[in-house]
Amino acid sequence: MEVRTIKVFTTVDNINLHTQVVDMSMTYGQQFGPTYLDGADVTKIKPHNSHEGKTFYVLPNDDTLRVEAFEYYHTTDPSFLGRYMSALNHTKKWKYPQVNGLTSIKWADNNCYLATALLTLQQIELKFNPPALQDAYYRARAGEAANFCALILAYCNKTVGELGDVRETMSYLFQHANLDSCKRVLNVVCKTCGQQQTTLKGVEAVMYMGTLSYEQFKKGVQIPCTCGKQATKYLVQQESPFVMMSAPPAQYELKHGTFTCASEYTGNYQCGHYKHITSKETLYCIDGALLTKSSEYKGPITDVFYKENSYTTTIK
């Protein structure tokens, strides 16, 4: 009895394709271990004539594949690729409408935090270190965002349907971005203890939790000093293409032309909904596939993004 075979390709990165001759009487799992086709788990399936010449994702289970996976995804987590594939199996079914010149995501599976993050990423200057993220990001900007969303979920250790947080998501993504040249110098002034300067680099240099107003941050924000008295913390120097200011959701007025974009969060910790506000020729609110415009805006804002380049204080 002759062994019926077909020729397929296996890959971990969709760049390096490895030619395989597979036995049609055995499952993919018996031949390769966990195997995925377009995100779908085909591990328990036997090869079919229609699979001839198709590319299958496999887990990096030998040295060659491990090197290829690390170079593309910059992670050695053995569960990463499987999590990416199972997320992709959902995100490829989502709709990605162009809204006001940006790629958004039609609401499904509690994905409003991903839509808000995706919209924000198209408006701030950011370059990702893992080629996987950078490639998928370019495709997302062009309207094909399924891979990018699935990668975000995998890097953030999230599953489809789980509630997510924009600030946490951005923080994970910033860790995989090139923020080497970003720098922030802060000064804390206390009447009792004097003053202390701190220099922050990388992710810490672009994120701040405690106030939404970048102007206020430049002037000074009140913080408790270690001595128990009130101290003032203010920005001395900022070198970065953008800054992200966050605070627990509270009524906040966004003035046209003073910011790049913002995240609105309605609801409580267990259950809520994100919308995205962007400042173009007027203010726009993007909620999944829905767009509304207004000249002014007041609502429960939790993150505001500002364009920056270089700032030095005039406070002496």
Rank of each mutant, 00 (worst) to 15 (best):
residue 143 G to V: 03
residue 88 L to G: 01
residue 108 A to M: 07
residue 298 K to L: 15
residue 27 T to I: 11
residue 73 Y to G: 03
residue 17 L to K: 10
residue 162 E to Q: 11
residue 246 S to M: 04
residue 158 K to A: 06
residue 46 K to A: 13
residue 87 A to M: 06
residue 19 T to D: 12
residue 110 N to R: 06
residue 71 E to C: 10
residue 293 K to F: 10
residue 118 L to W: 03
residue 178 N to R: 08
residue 255 K to C: 10
residue 273 H to P: 00
residue 51 H to A: 08
residue 293 K to P: 12
residue 214 Y to V: 09
residue 303 D to I: 03
residue 61 N to T: 14
residue 63 D to I: 09
residue 259 F to N: 04
residue 119 L to W: 01
residue 191 K to R: 10
residue 223 I to F: 14
residue 286 I to V: 10
residue 102 L to Q: 03
residue 105 I to C: 06
residue 44 K to M: 13
residue 36 Y to D: 05
residue 277 I to S: 00
residue 61 N to I: 15
residue 316 K to Y: 15
residue 6 I to E: 04
residue 159 T to R: 15
residue 42 V to A: 11
residue 315 I to A: 15
residue 195 Q to P: 09
residue 234 Y to D: 02
residue 115 A to N: 08
residue 187 N to S: 13
residue 269 Y to L: 15
residue 207 M to E: 05
residue 205 A to V: 02
residue 209 M to I: 15
residue 99 V to A: 09
residue 218 K to T: 06
residue 296 E to K: 10
residue 230 Q to W: 13
residue 267 G to M: 06
residue 174 F to E: 00
residue 281 E to R: 05
residue 154 A to Q: 04
residue 284 Y to N: 08
residue 234 Y to R: 09
residue 118 L to N: 05
residue 223 I to R: 05
residue 59 L to Q: 07
residue 20 Q to A: 14
residue 266 T to R: 06
residue 160 V to M: 00
residue 197 Q to W: 07
residue 184 R to F: 04
residue 223 I to A: 12
residue 241 P to K: 12
residue 234 Y to K: 10
residue 241 P to M: 06
residue 46 K to S: 10
residue 29 G to W: 09
residue 144 E to L: 08
residue 36 Y to P: 04
residue 16 N to C: 08
residue 20 Q to Y: 10
residue 315 I to M: 15
residue 40 A to E: 15
residue 168 E to G: 09
residue 256 H to W: 15
residue 243 V to W: 00
residue 235 L to F: 00
residue 139 R to P: 04
residue 214 Y to T: 02
residue 173 L to P: 01
residue 65 L to M: 10
residue 152 I to G: 03
residue 142 A to F: 11
residue 31 Q to V: 14
residue 37 L to Q: 11
residue 277 I to Y: 03
residue 160 V to F: 01
residue 78 P to I: 08
residue 135 D to H: 12
residue 254 L to P: 02
residue 310 S to V: 15
residue 208 Y to T: 08
residue 268 N to H: 13
residue 178 N to G: 07
residue 32 F to Q: 13
residue 50 S to W: 15
residue 302 T to S: 07
residue 153 L to R: 02
residue 2 E to K: 11
residue 33 G to S: 05
residue 49 N to I: 14
residue 209 M to S: 09
residue 26 M to T: 06
residue 253 E to N: 11
residue 149 C to D: 03
residue 165 D to V: 01
residue 87 A to V: 06
residue 69 A to E: 08
residue 151 L to N: 01
residue 69 A to Y: 08
residue 66 R to G: 10
residue 96 Y to N: 05
residue 170 M to Y: 01
residue 98 Q to M: 11
residue 193 C to R: 00
residue 124 I to C: 05
residue 145 A to G: 13
residue 237 Q to I: 10
residue 202 G to R: 05
residue 45 I to P: 05
residue 139 R to C: 11
residue 232 T to Y: 10
residue 196 Q to L: 10
residue 126 L to N: 03
residue 62 D to V: 07
residue 252 Y to H: 12
residue 150 A to P: 03
residue 113 Y to G: 00
residue 301 I to P: 00
residue 49 N to W: 15
residue 96 Y to D: 04
residue 77 D to H: 05
residue 240 S to W: 00
residue 117 A to C: 11
residue 73 Y to R: 03
residue 213 S to Y: 01
residue 41 D to A: 13
residue 235 L to H: 02
residue 75 T to L: 07
residue 53 G to D: 09
residue 286 I to P: 00
residue 151 L to Y: 05
residue 296 E to D: 15
residue 282 T to C: 13
residue 141 R to V: 11
residue 155 Y to M: 04
residue 137 Y to E: 05
residue 84 Y to C: 02
residue 3 V to R: 13
residue 148 F to P: 02
residue 261 C to D: 01
residue 161 G to Q: 05
residue 148 F to W: 03
residue 31 Q to L: 14
residue 208 Y to N: 08
residue 97 P to H: 12
residue 28 Y to T: 04
residue 17 L to P: 05
residue 75 T to I: 10
residue 222 Q to Y: 10
residue 51 H to P: 05
residue 275 K to E: 04
residue 67 V to T: 15
residue 283 L to E: 00
residue 84 Y to S: 02
residue 55 T to A: 12
residue 206 V to R: 02
residue 195 Q to G: 08
residue 176 H to N: 07
residue 299 G to A: 09
residue 144 E to R: 08
residue 121 L to F: 08
residue 284 Y to K: 03
residue 95 K to D: 15
residue 278 T to R: 07
residue 290 L to N: 15
residue 152 I to W: 04
residue 26 M to C: 14
residue 10 T to P: 07
residue 155 Y to T: 01
residue 192 T to Q: 14
residue 136 A to K: 04
residue 237 Q to Y: 14
residue 116 T to N: 09
residue 231 A to V: 03
residue 218 K to G: 02
residue 238 Q to K: 02
residue 232 T to C: 07
residue 3 V to M: 14
residue 255 K to M: 12
residue 156 C to L: 08
residue 217 F to C: 06
residue 37 L to A: 13
residue 193 C to W: 01
residue 56 F to T: 05
residue 91 T to Q: 04
residue 27 T to W: 06
residue 246 S to A: 03
residue 11 T to K: 06
residue 164 G to V: 00
residue 313 T to S: 13
residue 269 Y to W: 14
residue 184 R to T: 05
residue 48 H to E: 14
residue 242 F to L: 03
residue 202 G to D: 05
residue 93 K to V: 09
residue 181 S to Y: 12
residue 222 Q to P: 12
residue 173 L to W: 05
residue 149 C to W: 05
residue 211 T to E: 15
residue 200 L to Q: 15
residue 177 A to S: 09
residue 199 T to K: 08
residue 305 F to G: 01
residue 264 E to M: 10
residue 39 G to R: 06
residue 26 M to V: 13
residue 177 A to W: 00
residue 7 K to C: 10
residue 48 H to F: 12
residue 92 K to H: 06
residue 97 P to V: 15
residue 256 H to N: 14
residue 178 N to T: 06
residue 145 A to S: 05
residue 246 S to V: 02
residue 101 G to R: 05
residue 137 Y to W: 10
residue 93 K to S: 10
residue 221 V to C: 07
residue 254 L to I: 04
residue 218 K to E: 03
residue 71 E to T: 12
residue 229 K to C: 13
residue 248 P to G: 04
residue 70 F to E: 12
residue 272 G to D: 01
residue 175 Q to T: 08
residue 67 V to A: 11
residue 179 L to S: 04
residue 63 D to Y: 09
residue 100 N to L: 06
residue 174 F to D: 01
residue 306 Y to R: 01
residue 17 L to N: 09
residue 217 F to Q: 02
residue 114 L to W: 06
residue 248 P to N: 10
residue 90 H to P: 04
residue 263 S to R: 02
residue 136 A to F: 08
residue 180 D to E: 12
residue 46 K to C: 11
residue 54 K to N: 14
residue 139 R to A: 14
residue 228 G to Q: 05
residue 28 Y to R: 04
residue 220 G to T: 03
residue 75 T to K: 11
residue 156 C to S: 10
residue 235 L to T: 03
residue 156 C to M: 14
residue 247 A to S: 10
residue 81 L to C: 10
residue 36 Y to M: 04
residue 21 V to G: 10
residue 115 A to K: 01
residue 103 T to D: 04
residue 162 E to D: 12
residue 244 M to A: 01
residue 167 R to L: 00
residue 218 K to D: 00
residue 174 F to N: 02
residue 7 K to R: 11
residue 219 K to W: 05
residue 111 N to V: 01
residue 38 D to S: 10
residue 9 F to P: 01
residue 102 L to P: 01
residue 123 Q to T: 06
residue 131 P to H: 04
residue 174 F to S: 02
residue 9 F to E: 11
residue 297 Y to I: 07
residue 118 L to A: 05
residue 153 L to A: 04
residue 227 C to L: 01
residue 232 T to P: 01
